[in-house]
Amino acid sequence: MALFYQIPKLNYHKPKNLNEALKLLKELGDAKPIAGGTDLMVDMKIGRVKTRNLIDISDLREIRKIEFHKDSIIIGAAVTLQEIINNERIRREIPILVEAAENLGSWQIRNVATIGGNICNASPAADMAPPLLILNSKLKLSSINGDRVIPLEKFFKGPRQTELMVDELLTEIIVPRESCNAGMKFIKIGRRRAHTLSIVAVAVAVRTMEDKIEYVRIALNSIAPTPIRAYKTEEELIGSRVNEVEGKVKKLIEEIKPISDVRSSAEYRREMAVKITIDALKMSIENWRCKEK
């Protein structure tokens, strides 16, 4: 019994397998999938989300798995953040995902919150988005009529708006192996040292050759209506010398649109976006050099 707030009566569905879940999603029309519920329950409490049907997907084996294939690593949408942190191979092969997950929420939250939920909630501050964006991740969206695979950067449409159709479920996050071959770094600035929403966060992936940047990916959160890739800055950086990056990153302010809110002013966000991008770039270059050796 909720003492303090009222959630309208709703039906709770617990499908036995993915197929059943997709069928329900199609049939019910207005259903919301729930996994960890760490965002959804809060949204229901404050009335931002209204639904008559919840479909519990947290225990679906098909989407709570991590697979290591020759060309890709597939992370099921219902994998919790703590499962990512605890996975030795993820820690070895894509440590940037662990870095980002370890900085998200508290241990209690990470035990139930899922990577798919963090993406589908489409918060401008989603912490798993920047690392997945720089990994050129693809998303598998499934419905009873079939699957489609889209790049993550095409997924976000606005704050809490995504490419998902009402009958679609995010089932897999596909990380191409070749994207993992880079120096990477995740940096997040929050208002305190743990359990904090980001003021701004950045993830960077870099490969250099003969002191020149030959490959770079930059993604940030909390500085635009959705997490974004910094395409212009990336373009600016390609081919430049590693000691020139600082000047080139100044371009970043042209492609971000931070707002002022209770966490930070737009001005501070803008300045910090540049600073931590420079920091992350330098560290990524260092990481790449170590990797090459």
Binding site: V42, R191, R192, R193, A194, H195, T196, V262
Partner: peptide
């Protein structure tokens, strides 16, 4: 505690009002 221009508290919850954690 932050107020809007009508005197309402704009951070009356644990998302927006923060206190130190053990890590701080």
């Amino acid at each position: 505690v932050e107020f809007d221009n009508k005197g309402a508290i704009i951070n009356p919850n644990l998302t927006d009002y923060i206190v130190p954690t053990a890590m701080d």
